[in-house]
Amino acid sequence: MGLDFSILAGYEGVLVQGAIWTVGLTVASIVLSLVIGTLMAVFRLSGMRIVRWPVSFVIWLFMGTPLLLQLYLIYFGLVQIGLDLNAFTAGVIALSLHFAVYDADIIRAGIVAVDKGQYEAARSLGLSHAQAMRKSIVPQALYNVAPALGNMMIALLKESSLVSVIGVMELTLSAQRAISDTFRPFEFYLAAAVIYYVLNLVLEQAVKAVERRSAKYR
């Protein structure tokens, strides 16, 4: 009975490995979600219904269903139609799509907030619509909504623990494996919480650095 944190000494390698997998999963999902979210935001603002409506439907679908269900559908469901993904890839895809729809909503608002004169100025310089969006409007929108996107990145880091249910050996599952050996849940879950908090602080500082940089362009 009682707490015994000395038990952690034999499992630091397991926890560090889990933290590395968590970082890799988070970074890959953040990058992919921003790319997909930006494309969704641009398509949703398109004047063509054949482009706008499917994207709006996908956003509605993913916003209306829980991440855990989406994770199960991608990992266990796609294999039934011949698409067999490994657990890490399925986790990245699920996290990326889930957060991309929220990023899309944020980025869309940022694009709408950019002064229309910026678009007209870009077109007057001879840029096409796509070039004006890519080189002028979207970068300004991303700068303007950097704080909101940063919050979504932090949320993604926390939600990455859900991929443990499909066997990705990230931090939460690593702690659970150690607990199954030692039957000491409090010590290992607390250790995992501390590591998550440290990772969260690092990500927060990175986001603040981006915000300071983006403030120069506003």
Rank of each mutant, 00 (worst) to 15 (best):
T182F: 01
G13D: 14
F62V: 15
M169D: 08
K216P: 12
D84F: 08
K116C: 00
A94Q: 04
L78K: 05
G126T: 00
N151C: 01
A132M: 07
A41N: 05
Y72C: 05
P66W: 00
L127V: 02
S161M: 04
L34R: 05
L73Y: 02
L83S: 07
Q80F: 13
L95A: 07
K116R: 15
A100R: 05
V14H: 12
A90W: 02
L15E: 09
A19E: 03
I111A: 02
F5N: 09
D181G: 11
I111L: 11
S33H: 04
G110Q: 09
A148S: 12
L39N: 07
G117Y: 07
S161F: 06
Y196F: 15
A90F: 02
L95T: 08
V114D: 01
A155Q: 12
G126R: 02
D115V: 06
A121N: 05
D115F: 04
G150K: 07
L97T: 09
L203C: 08
Q17G: 15
A113C: 09
I36E: 00
Y196S: 06
I30F: 06
A141L: 00
A148E: 04
F183K: 09
K208T: 14
T182S: 09
M63R: 14
S56E: 11
V168S: 08
K208S: 05
W60A: 14
Y217M: 09
V168C: 11
K208F: 02
V27I: 14
K116H: 14
A206I: 14
L34Q: 11
F183T: 11
Q131M: 12
L73C: 03
S160M: 03
V114L: 01
L95V: 06
A191W: 08
A19K: 09
V58C: 09
Y197E: 03
I195P: 08
I93E: 03
G10C: 02
V165E: 06
F62R: 12
Q118G: 03
S33K: 04
Q140R: 11
L32E: 00
E159S: 15
F186H: 07
L157R: 09
A215T: 13
A191T: 13
T182Y: 01
Q140Y: 00
G110R: 11
Q118W: 10
A193S: 15
V198M: 07
M48Y: 15
Y119P: 02
L73D: 01
L203G: 11
V163I: 14
I107M: 00
A146Q: 05
